[in-house]
Amino acid sequence: MAYKDYYDVLGVSRGASDADIKSAYRKLAKQFHPDKNQGDEKSADKFKEVGEAYAVLSDPEKRKVYDQYGHTGQVPPGYGGGGGFQGGDFAGFDPGQFSDFFQGLFGRGGGGGGFRNPAGQQVNLEDLLGGLGGTGSGRRFVQNVEGELQVTLEEAFSGSDEVINVDGKRLSLRVPAGTRDGARLRLAGQGPGGGDVLLTIRVLEDARFDLDGDHLTTTVDVPAPVAALGGDVKVQTLSGGSGQLSIPAGSSSGRRMRLRGQGWPRKDGTRGDLYVRLNITVPPHLSDEEKELYRRLRDLQH
C-alpha cells in the first residue's frame, strides 16, 4: 500500500493544534460523507482516508508514535511485518498497514455484508503496540479496545441500531435516542481476549440543523408575499416529519420563531424547542403578471 501523509490528507501542518485537526476533519468529513455523495466511490474513498488520518492525529499517543516512526517509514523495534506483530525490527514500514489492520479488526457493518465508514472506527494504537499478550506463536489482546462510532445527527436524534465488527465478530448495539457527541458506550466482555469494547459516539454535523443545548435551529424559505401579508409555511423537522408555522404579516429575513417540543430529546422524556430562522425569498423567474404586481408595489414605495 502506498504511503499516506496524514497531515496532507487533512490539509494541516505538522505543528497543527488539536483544534485545527478537529476542525479540518469535520469540514472534510462533512464534504465527503457518503450520505451526501451516494454512489460516488471517490468520495467514499476520500471519506475513509480522512477518517484514517483523524483516527491517528486526534489521539495524542497515536500521533506521537506516527510522528516518531510513521512519517519516516520506520516502526519501533520488536514489531515486525508479514505475519502480524512478530519479533524483530525492520525498515520500510508503511503506516497505511495500520489502516488495513484497523478496518479488519474494527469496522462498522453496513448493508450487503460490507462495511459502513470503517475508517471511523478507531482502535487505540497503544493497545495494539503494547497490549498484546500470550506466549508462543499465538498473540491475543488482553486490554480493552477503544474506538469511535460515527452517527449522523438524525441517527443520534432518533436512535439507531448499529452493527460493528470486532476481531471478526459481528456485534449489535443500540445508540439511544438523544445521544450526545462524546457519549460513551461499553460492550462488556465483547473485545478480543474477553476485554471490553469502549465506544465514543461522534455525531456528524448536519447542514440543515444546528444543535445548541436542547434546542435545534433550522432555516426555512418564506415567499415575499407570505412574509408581507402573513400565512403558513411548512417546516421539516429532524424526526423526518413536518410542521406548519404561521408567519405573521410584515415578517423580515432573520426573524426567529419557535416550534415548541420539536427540539432534542431529554432524559425525562420531554424535548427542547425547534427555532426557525426566516429567509425571505423572491422567485428567480417572474411571470408577466407577477412582474407587473411587483412594479406596482415598487412604485408605491415612492
Rank of each mutant, 00 (worst) to 15 (best):
F209H: 06
S252Q: 11
G261D: 10
S17I: 07
S58V: 11
S158M: 14
L204M: 08
G147P: 00
D5M: 11
D8Y: 00
D161V: 08
T179F: 08
F93Q: 03
P223L: 04
F98Q: 01
G241K: 04
D210K: 15
N37S: 09
S253I: 08
K234C: 06
L286S: 02
V175K: 04
Q103H: 13
Q150Y: 13
G107R: 12
G254I: 12
Y3N: 10
R186D: 12
V75G: 12
A188Q: 12
K27C: 06
F90C: 05
G110V: 10
A29R: 15
L204N: 14
H285C: 05
V123P: 01
Q262W: 13
P248I: 09
Q31Y: 14
G87I: 09
Y66P: 04
Q68N: 12
L28D: 09
D127T: 10
V163A: 14
G230I: 08
A119F: 00
D196E: 10
I21N: 09
G182P: 09
V197F: 06
V75E: 02
D167P: 00
L10C: 11
L185F: 09
P34E: 00
M257C: 05
T72K: 15
A188C: 00
L153I: 09
Y66T: 08
V222L: 10
G243V: 03
D221G: 10
S239C: 08
H71Q: 12
K36Q: 13
Q68C: 03
G138L: 06
H285T: 13
L173H: 04
H302T: 14
E126F: 00
R170N: 14
K4T: 11
V233W: 00
V56M: 13
K234S: 14
R277M: 13
G70L: 06
S13H: 05
T218G: 03
G11Q: 12
Q121T: 12
A177Y: 04
N117W: 05
P76K: 11
G243F: 00
G243T: 07
V233H: 07
P176K: 02
L28T: 05
K22W: 08
Q74G: 01
G51D: 02
D18A: 15
L105N: 06
G195H: 11
L259D: 04
A16E: 00
M257E: 07
L187P: 02
N279C: 01
G51S: 01
T200Y: 03
G195L: 06
G269H: 07
I201Y: 04
N117S: 13
G39S: 08
V226M: 06
Y79Q: 12
G254F: 11
D18K: 09
G112K: 12
L10W: 03
E49K: 10
L259S: 07
L216T: 04
V282Y: 10
L293Q: 14
M1H: 13
G240I: 12
L171E: 03
R184I: 14
Q68S: 08
D161N: 15
G130Q: 02
P176F: 01
